[in-house]
Design a protein around this nucleic acid. Structure first.
Lengths: 337, 337
DNA sequence: TTGAAAGCGCTAACAC
DNA sequence: GTGTTAGCGCTTTCAA
């Protein structure tokens, strides 16, 4: 049914070797023969078998990407960026989306790690980071961790400076004259959450302010509303809030607006991530933007380096990239009245 | 370096065939030998080569998914669902994210279609639908189109009833007593946009209302704000708006709130898609939810059917699935005052 | 400039 | 229950 390289060879009156040379753009093929081959290929609608090539070369040409949640501007952006840069280097992208709930069998490994499906893996903000890392190391699969949640010494990582993000977000509010500033944090499972919180605390302390009003919520789950509502109910409404992500910020704003507070006239709110909706909601959200494109670019680049290096060299030096977030001022923050 | 099946055979003192049998859970292996093999596998940290298997079997175990945009609750949800169901059937998922801008070379085909990388392809809401379909047919790669933008007779598709969605959304507003209802539509490139608009028009007409107030915006681009602002400026503010998607709805609400209209007291707004933020924004967005999980499930199911059927049978019957959207009433719509 | 032969790692068919 | 053999489709020597 499907044509193989022999069919092409026969049809073109040449050998499989010559066909192979044409396929790989070898210069040592007579132009006339090259044409014959190309014609046969077209007529037979032939395309080479990637499996056979892979088997021969020992590389699959596939990069794997594991992630936990989609539906988040940051992760989505990274995926897109990773895809673009992979393609540019001739690699396909296979993805694996872990469910929130960890698999029952503690042993169960990621789908992508099976067999030698991929030449390397990008671990994006995984909840099973530890397990993945040790398994990847054991299997000697080259990898890089993006948005890591723990500190690993010998692991190549690409991260965004969350401490700096928290610090800058808070400083923005302070610079607007606010002194009663609250922080709704993400859960401690994430290094990013505690880093942002540390940035908040330091910025407050350095300004001689009390960093006492902190509530620990959770990314992903819509907690901003509840926490803010509680503060309002207890008469503790701050004049400014630093929310650990944009969704939390949205929830906080909703609680405020429901209670007839105006944003930003009565209370300023700053988010984190610069999700797509940040630009379209009322009032437009001030937020910290993550360098999404660069995250993906560095991830692919480092992974390719890992893949090209001999296995044992991978312990010699470990690349760690730290990118900076960027403050995007919109409408949800203003001078304290 | 990397162990192969021979190494395992040697180490366990058995033949490669026996090792292969163990790998494939063949029942005809003496328990004692099975243990020997398993031990050797573990010691050598062996994992079989997918390439060799693929070559032998003529199938890759990979499903391809092409999509245009990420960062959209609907698409993201479908991707997740497709991943889950693929995995459940033992397939890996490779994705290809097309850039908005079509490739310069009109010829350039999708990355995934190259060689025989995948056993089948899910085309998700592609802007290059026509081109993909004809190429996939030519290459005889089994496929299914999800959220198709044109009507194709012999193409298996999974769609959501957009006409019904538009109709129901509009009826919801009518049932609340509104008569001056506007519609901000998506661009006509998308069948979904014109279908929703048709639903709007029919619902209005059937209720004896004029479906005249229609503006054609564009999905993805933030147009809801501009269009609504224009209506407000020209004194044509409707009492209810049906936005073709949630982002447009968000923009429309922003324009309204900026102009001191209250939502829903002065103007009701209904969106479409039930993006994640719909539940967190103020006021919570009433919207039409797409059956995301089912979309992915049916897509995979139909694709697997296509893959198992002989090539020539694929013209005999063509599966077409049409799912129904669901109205989710929240806070952005209310009775006309 | 071209081709014959060997082999990448695995498994199905056929012995034993 | 187990092993021998052949071959999946391609590319890489090596020889012509």
């Amino acid at each position: 049914m499907k044509a193989n390289i022999f069919d092409v060879a026969k049809k073109s009156g040449l050998s499989t070797v010559t066909v192979s040379r044409v396929l790989n753009n070898a210069p040592t093929v007579r132009e006339k023969n090259r044409q014959k081959v190309l014609e046969a290929i077209k007529e037979l609608n032939y395309s080479p078998s990637s499996a056979a090539r892979t088997l021969k070369h020992g590389r699959t040409g596939v990069i794997g990407l594991t992630l936990t949640a989609l539906n988040d501007s940051v992760f989505d952006g990274v995926v897109k960026s990773v895809f673009d840069h992979s393609q540019r280097s001739g690699y396909f992208l296979a993805i694996s989306i872990a469910s929130e709930a960890s698999d029952d069998t503690g042993e169960a490994s990621n789908f992508l790690f099976q067999e030698d499906r991929v030449d390397g893996i990008i671990v994006l903000s995984s909840l099973e980071e530890e397990r993945y890392i040790s398994e990847l190391k054991k299997k000697r699969i080259p990898f890089v961790v993006v948005d890591s949640h723990q500190e690993h010494v010998y692991v190549p990582t690409v991260n965004v400076n969350n401490y700096r993000g928290g610090y800058e977000a808070t400083k923005h509010l302070i610079s607007l004259g606010h002194t009663d500033i609250a922080h709704i944090s993400g859960q401690d499972t994430f290094l990013s959450a505690s880093e942002r919180r540390k940035g908040f605390t330091d910025a407050m302390t350095q300004a001689g302010l009390s960093p006492a009003k902190i509530a620990v919520g959770s990314f992903g789950i819509h907690c901003g509303y509840d926490i803010m509502k509680q503060w309002i109910a207890s008469g503790q409404t701050p004049t400014a809030v630093f929310a650990a992500d944009d969704v939390i910020a949205l929830g906080a704003m909703r609680a405020l607006m429901e209670a007839k507070f105006r944003v930003p006239e009565d209370v300023s709110v700053i988010g984190y991530d610069d999700q797509l909706f940040a630009d379209e909601v009322y009032p437009k959200l001030t937020t910290m933007r993550q360098p999404v494109e660069e995250l993906g670019e560095h991830a692919v680049q480092i992974l390719l380096e890992q893949m090209s290096e001999p296995q044992d060299a991978q312990h010699k030096r470990t690349t760690k990239i730290l990118l900076e977030p960027k403050l995007v001022v919109r409408e949800s923050t203003s001078f304290k009245r």
